[in-house]
């Protein structure tokens, strides 16, 4: 169980220049009435990198995600996103489905599947976002409609296979165990063909074995060239999988850097983990 955690932190995929920034958040400020949820948050994510956002409850992590994906409209700041081979675009003020269309997919902290659809259909919904079949094509069974239908099934099965749910294709989403629902949600997000994947606490509520599977899955996703922005409470997972870490507290970035740097940062130890620095588990420390 500990052997996978002992592995070295994943390096950046070859060929990504240091200034190849896929996501550039600057001075993001979000207020709800008098409450400031995000206060001048800035961060940069390089292409292909796994960047983790950590912080205590209420630090603004999920608010940050909701700003990036168009669910919230922050009062100030800019979010520039650069897709593969695309020009940088501003994300703020765009609707969630448009953001997804630009190549940013997300999962939710409290899993949001389509509970009565099968696993396959859940993924198909994501895959078919890129398809063009309209009502007339579907009614008349035009060649493109039939081709897209075949492609949708094939691609969805492939993705279910990728997340390890090949055997669950025809099962109802809500009938899956918790950990498998998490992975199904990831498969649905991958179906939209993203170049940046936002994972909101993917390990929440999973058991240690599922956490290991998840760690491996996140690495494999990053291995395909997809950048991963990860919110996570599980420090062991963050330290073993992320190449950079941004720490939020009270809506502010209080530290950023490599996992090792962040772990040593006194502000992080003070604000996030309490003054007892020994609470940080090191990636090499094994216990089960």
């Amino acid at each position: 169980m500990t052997t996978t955690l002992d592995g070295p932190s994943p390096a950046d995929p070859a060929g990504s220049a240091p200034d190849d920034i896929t996501l550039h958040v600057s001075d993001l400020t979000l207020r709800f009435g008098g409450v400031t949820s995000l206060d001048g948050v800035s961060l940069r994510q390089r292409r292909g990198e796994i960047l983790a956002v950590i912080g205590p409850n209420g630090a603004g992590k999920t608010s940050l995600f909701n700003c990036l994906t168009g669910a919230y409209r922050p009062q100030e700041g800019t979010v520039r996103y650069t897709g593969v081979g695309r020009k940088p675009v501003e994300l703020l003020g765009r609707k969630p489905h448009v953001v997804t269309g630009l190549g940013i997919a997300r999962t939710f902290q409290n899993i949001r599947l389509f509970p009565a659809l099968t696993a396959l259909e859940n993924v198909q919904v994501g895959v078919e976002v890129r398809h063009k079949t309209g009502p007339f094509g579907a009614i008349l069974g035009l060649p493109r409609a039939r081709r897209e239908e075949r492609e949708s099934v094939a691609r969805s099965v492939e993705l279910l296979d990728f997340v390890g749910l090949r055997h669950r294709v025809d099962d109802i989403a809500s009938s899956l165990p918790y950990g498998e629902q998490r992975r199904l949600e990831i498969a649905r997000a991958l179906g939209t063909n993203p170049s940046l994947l936002l994972l909101d606490e993917p390990a929440a509520g999973t058991n240690p074995a599922e956490k290991l599977d998840l760690t491996a899955l996140i690495r494999r996703i990053a291995g395909t060239g997809i950048s991963v922005l990860l919110i996570e409470h599980d420090m062991r997972l963050v330290m073993s999988v992320a190449s950079s870490v941004v720490v939020l507290n009270f809506g502010r970035v209080i530290a950023s850097g490599t996992p090792a740097e962040v772990q040593r940062d006194p502000a992080v130890i003070e604000a996030y983990l309490g003054s007892d620095g020994a609470a940080i588990p090191k990636p090499t420390e094994g216990e089960s």
């Binding site: 994906t69 669910a71 609707k95 969630p96 489905h97 997804t100 269309g101 997919a105 997300r106 939710f108 949001r112 599947l113 389509f114 509970p115 009565a116 659809l117 259909e121 198909q124 919904v125 994501g126 078919e128 976002v129 398809h131 079949t133 309209g134 009502p135 094509g137 579907a138 009614i139 008349l140 069974g141 409609a145 897209e148 239908e149 949708s152 649905r188 997000a189 179906g191 939209t192």
Partner: peptide, 25 residues
């Protein structure tokens, strides 16, 4: 035909969880 197509699935998705459907593009 429509129900079994991508449109029917997208409707089902909206019906079951509109936020998730929107986030799934």
């Amino acid at each position: 035909r429509i129900e079994r197509s991508r449109i029917g699935r997208a409707w089902a998705a909206i019906r079951e969880d509109e936020i998730a459907a929107e986030a799934s593009g």
